[in-house]
């Protein structure tokens, strides 16, 4: 079983601060592997534990990706194939770059997170599947079975669930409910540096990035606080708070 897991580097959102006056984010923070990418990778590792095979982490990003990809290798990917001169962040171009890397090898299964925690566009699985002309199963909360060239998945559609079977190869995107990703131990981290990483440039892949849209603004949402002050005796104030909670929640 040869599994490709498309992973994404994102800014460590917990460390991103917002300039109060302008609402602009300060992005001078380290990057990390996206949480949903880790869910996808965890699922690949579970399949490999059952069926054997190889996991290849695929990613496109900034030069910092050479460092970030080690998280995927430490978690359990056997090797990586990456592009590190990709700074354009549109889903359209990202899907093209990932697909070109994927085309360089053949895979039984391509796993991704359903969306990424930063822009959450949720387009990657469908775009990659369409580019590679493969079947796709999205919103997967459980991979029930992988055998005899087929995969059976449970799709979480909020109000109902679907059980879907597809031939392999197939593109599958997972939700964060599917598992709890493992945390790499020291031994895994030390081994990660010795695993092979194939580094392509956009030129190697024959891709020229063109912008199809422009980001006009990237600001934190403005939240106006009600700043309601409740005054009075404790019992009276408690009653009013209970009333507001009952009304608002």
């Amino acid at each position: 079983m040869k599994i490709a897991v498309c992973v994404k580097e994102i800014y460590n959102l917990e460390q991103v601060k917002i300039v109060r006056e302008t609402r602009e984010p300060i992005l001078d923070v380290p990057k990390k592997l996206d949480d949903l990418s880790r869910n996808a990778l965890e699922e690949a590792i579970k399949i490999r534990e059952k069926l054997g095979g190889e996991i290849v982490a695929i990613s496109a990003g900034s030069p910092e990706l050479r460092k970030t990809i080690k998280e995927a290798l430490a978690m359990g990917a056997d090797r990586a194939a990456i592009v590190t001169d990709f700074t354009e962040s549109s889903p359209e171009s990202a899907a093209l770059v990932l697909s070109r890397i994927l085309e360089k090898d053949s895979y039984d299964l391509i796993l991704l997170g359903d969306a990424s925690s930063d822009d959450y566009s949720g387009q990657m699985a469908s775009r990659v599947a369409e580019t590679l002309n493969l079947p796709q199963i999205t919103f997967v909360s459980e991979i029930r079975e992988v055998s005899d060239g087929k995969i059976t998945c449970v799709r979480d559609m909020d109000d109902y669930i679907e059980v879907v079977e597809s031939d392999l190869p197939c593109v599958v995107s997972v939700t964060n409910e599917i598992n709890e990703p493992r945390i790499p131990a020291l031994k895994d981290i030390l081994k990660a540096s010795k695993k092979p990483v194939e580094n392509f440039s956009l030129q190697d892949l024959g891709i020229e990035i063109s912008r199809s849209y422009e980001i006009v603004e990237n600001l934190a949402p403005a939240v106006d606080r009600k700043q309601e002050v409740i005054e009075g005796e404790a019992a009276e104030v408690a009653g009013k708070i209970a009333e507001i909670i009952g009304r608002e929640v």
């Binding site: 917990e14 460390q15 460092k67 790499p184």
Partner: peptide, 24 residues
């Protein structure tokens, strides 16, 4: 989120592996 923005440090530095281990 870290409560304190600790000053950047170019003396007490850690390797990529050490930073990844600290995060894990």
């Amino acid at each position: 989120m870290s409560v304190i923005d600790f000053p950047k440090n170019t003396v007490l530095t850690f390797s990529e592996e050490e930073e990844l281990f600290r995060e894990s």
